[in-house]
């Protein structure tokens, strides 16, 4: 059982003209076994929400709270949050030249589990995870994300999700830039994760397309740094038909 609870979260970034408020009070509760989709137009603050939960230093929390199973996430360092069970699949995964995928995965797994994985099963697990995401086993030897195509980067994120096995996964536009085959492969990966006991997923997306493969329990419309409307899966259908216009016109 795990619960990610976001309460009245307010976040700003530093700009040349002083701090700029981006999240204006976000409240969301993701219980274990639940998948929540957050949909919203460009610039509405979706990535800001994801990065703030993960602890990116660029963002300043100005109010509200985030807890995971009652623990204060905002008081934790970035790596403590990950070890506590949070995982962020990034919209733009970062290249780390000279660090092989194999080294990276083993280091991360060791950090999260607090002990090195058993060598024999681990190599098999890694190759299996890569293979299921249609990544050639030669990816193990390549530098992290360096020279990966956009789609390969996203599939690599989901391979990490499966291997690191967090409690709650935040997926920031994992679907964007994927062709339909890659979208299916990625969705299957996320669904395999969801089938595990008690996992929560916060799926951030721009398009309803991925929701045909990953059925959300709840859908939230995100506009101008807040949740403008929440509902069941049917809300996605409404967005598919009508877009965000009705929300934008009421926004100041």
């Amino acid at each position: 059982m795990s619960t990610l609870q976001i309460t009245d979260l307010q976040v700003s970034v530093d700009t040349e003209d002083g701090p700029k408020e981006i999240l204006k009070g976000v409240t969301l509760t993701i219980d274990s076994g639940e998948t929540h989709a957050i949909m919203g137009p460009n610039g509405s603050g979706k990535s800001t929400l994801a990065y703030s939960i993960a602890g990116h230093p660029k963002y300043t929390i100005t109010g509200g709270s985030v807890t995971l199973d009652g623990e204060d996430v905002l008081a934790m360092s970035v790596d403590e949050r990950a070890r506590a069970g949070l995982f962020l699949a990034m919209q733009y995964p970062v290249e780390v030249p000279g660090v092989s995928v194999a080294n990276f995965l083993r280091t991360a797994k060791t950090a999260i589990d607090g002990e090195a994985p058993k060598l024999r099963t681990w190599v098999k697990d890694v190759n299996g995870a890569l293979e299921k995401l249609n990544l050639d086993s030669s990816f193990s030897a390549r530098s992290v994300n360096e020279g990966f195509s956009g789609g390969e980067k996203k599939r690599h994120e989901i391979a990490q999700l499966e291997l690191l096995d967090p409690k709650v996964a935040i997926l920031d536009e994992t679907d964007s830039g994927l062709d339909i085959d890659a979208l299916k492969v990625v969705s299957e990966g996320v669904n395999r994760f969801r089938e595990r006991e008690g996992k929560g997923v916060l799926l951030i997306t721009h398009y309803t397309r991925i929701l045909r493969y990953i059925q959300p329990d709840r859908v939230h419309v995100f506009v101008d740094g807040k949740v403008a409307e929440s509902g069941g899966p049917e809300l996605a259908d409404k967005l598919e038909a009508e877009g965000y216009e009705s929300y934008l016109s009421v926004a100041p």
């Binding site: 602890g55 790596d79 990950a82 995964p93 970062v94 780390v96 080294n103 990276f104 950090a111 992290v144």
Partner: peptide, 19 residues
């Protein structure tokens, strides 16, 4: 780069060493 590694649970020090 450091944020990416740390977001995978790797400590600050270990992340610097990796980079």
């Amino acid at each position: 780069q450091l944020f990416y590694l740390r977001s995978r649970g790797v400590s600050d020090e270990e992340s610097r060493r990796l980079v």
